[in-house]
C-alpha cells in the first residue's frame, strides 16, 4: 500500500512540476504531447493520474507527520483543474466551456470535502477561525476580506457591465435541421430515403457493407485497405467512383477543405470559422449522405433560418457541379476520412 501511495505521490509531484513549468514557460508545452486521435482519452487518463498522484501525496505527507490541511487541499485541487484546462489543453478551450468545467469541478471539490462530517469540519475550520477572529492574524485577515471582497465583487460587476468592443458571442447552429426534401437540377430528393447511387458493389447494386469494407482505416495514418486503391486504373464500380470523386474534390474543394480534408486548405484561414473538418467525428461521421448532398448543393446561402448566423461561405455547388459529381465527391469524402455515413436501418 505504502509503495503504491509513494508511486502516486511521485506522479503527483511530477504532474505539478510539469504543469507549473508549462505555465511559466520553463518547460515547453509539447513536453508531453497530446497525441492526435487519442487526445480525449489522454486527457481523462492524465486527470486520473493526477487524482491518484494527489491522493498519494496527501497520504505520504500524513505518514510523515506533515498533514496538508483539508481546506488547502480542496482549494489547491480546484486551482489545479482550472490551470490544467487553461494551460495544458491545446487548442485553447473557449471560456464558456471552461466556466462549465470550472463550476462542476468546484461542486466536485465541495462534495469531496463535505462527504463526511469530520472532513467538513476540517475544511471549514480555517473559514470559521477567520470569522471568529480570536487571534491577531485572523482579525487582520477578517478586515482584509471586509475590504477586498466588496472591491472584488465591484470589479467583477464593473467588468461585466462596461461596454466592450469585442465581437459578441455566437450560438452557432453548425448542423441545422435539413428540409424533408431538396430539389437539385430539377429533381426532388427526399432526404430520409434517398441513397448515393454510386455506393455500389461490383455487381452495381447499392451495398453499404461492401463500400464500408473498402474505406481507409481510421486512426493515425489513415492507411488504405489492401486491394482497395482507387487510383488503380483497373478498378471498377465503387473504387472508380471514389477516384472520380477525388478528382472533383481536388479540382474544386481542397482549396478550402484541405488535402487532408481537415478544413485547413490554402484559403481556409481567410474565413472565420475555417471550413468544416471532415476528419472530426462531429461532422460528416454524424450525418446521412443526403444531408451532405443537401449542404453541398445549396451551400451557405441555402442554410435555413435556424442556421444562424449563417457563417458559411460555401458556394451552392449545384450551380457548378452535376448531381452525379456531387454524389461522387461525397463518396470520396467518406472513403478518405474512413467514416461511415449515418444510416437508420
Amino acid at each position: 500500500m505504502k509503495a503504491l501511495m509513494s508511486l502516486g505521490a511521485l506522479v503527483g509531484v511530477i504532474g505539478i512540476l510539469l504543469l507549473g513549468g508549462m505555465i511559466f514557460n520553463v518547460v515547453p508545452s509539447t513536453t508531453v504531447r497530446l497525441v492526435e486521435g487519442y487526445m480525449p482519452m489522454q486527457m481523462l487518463f492524465e486527470l486520473t493520474c493526477f487524482v491518484a498522484g494527489f491522493a498519494g501525496l496527501s497520504y505520504m505527507m500524513n505518514a510523515m507527520g506533515m498533514p496538508f490541511p483539508r481546506f488547502w487541499q480542496g482549494i489547491g485541487f480546484w486551482a489545479f483543474i482550472l490551470l490544467y484546462l487553461k494551460y495544458r489543453v491545446y487548442p485553447p478551450i473557449p471560456f464558456s466551456v471552461r466556466a462549465m468545467y470550472g463550476t462542476v469541478s468546484l461542486v466536485a471539490v465541495f462534495m469531496w470535502v463535505s462527504a463526511s462530517e469530520e472532513d467538513w469540519k476540517k475544511f471549514k475550520q480555517p473559514i470559521m477561525n477567520v470569522l471568529d477572529a480570536q487571534g491577531g492574524m485572523n482579525k487582520l485577515l477578517r478586515y482584509a476580506y471586509l475590504v477586498l471582497l466588496p472591491i472584488l465583487i465591484g470589479g467583477f460587476s464593473y467588468n461585466a457591465m462596461v461596454p466592450k468592443s469585442e465581437e459578441p458571442i455566437e450560438l452557432r447552429t453548425v448542423h441545422p435541421a435539413p428540409p424533408a426534401s431538396t430539389k437539385v437540377h430539377g429533381k426532388t430528393y427526399t432526404l430520409q430515403t434517398s441513397q448515393n447511387p454510386y455506393r455500389v458493389n461490383q455487381e452495381g447494386k447499392y451495398d453499404q457493407d461492401y463500400t464500408n469494407a473498402n474505406i481507409v482505416e481510421q486512426g493515425m495514418g489513415r492507411l488504405m485497405k489492401p486491394n482497395a486503391n482507387p487510383w488503380d486504373d483497373k478498378n471498377k464500380g465503387y473504387l472508380k467512383y471514389v477516384r472520380e470523386g477525388g478528382e472533383i474534390f481536388f479540382q474544386n474543394c481542397h482549396f478550402c477543405h484541405g488535402d487532408n480534408l481537415n478544413g485547413r486548405g490554402l484559403h481556409a484561414f481567410a474565413f472565420n470559422p475555417i471550413p468544416a473538418n471532415f476528419t472530426d467525428p462531429g461532422t460528416i461521421a454524424q450525418l446521412q449522405e443526403t444531408f451532405i448532398f443537401w449542404r453541398v448543393s445549396k451551400g451557405g446561402i441555402g442554410l435555413p433560418n435556424e442556421g444562424f448566423p449563417w457563417a458559411s461561405v460555401m458556394p451552392p455547388w449545384e450551380q457548378h457541379l452535376t448531381v452525379d459529381e456531387i454524389w461522387k465527391v461525397i463518396l470520396f469524402e467518406y472513403w478518405h476520412t474512413g467514416y461511415y455515413p449515418r444510416t437508420w436501418d
Binding site: 497530446l34 492526435e36 487526445m39 480525449p40 486527457m43 489543453v89 491545446y90 487548442p91 478551450i93 473557449p94 466551456v97 452557432r172 453548425v174 478544413g263 485547413r264 470559422p273 475555417i274 468544416a276 473538418n277 472530426d280 467525428p281 462531429g282 461532422t283
Partner: peptide, 9 residues
C-alpha cells in the same frame, strides 16, 4: 475551427 480536437470528441 468549429470543432475542438480534444473536447469535440
Amino acid at each position: 475551427g468549429q470543432q475542438h480536437p480534444v473536447l469535440g470528441n
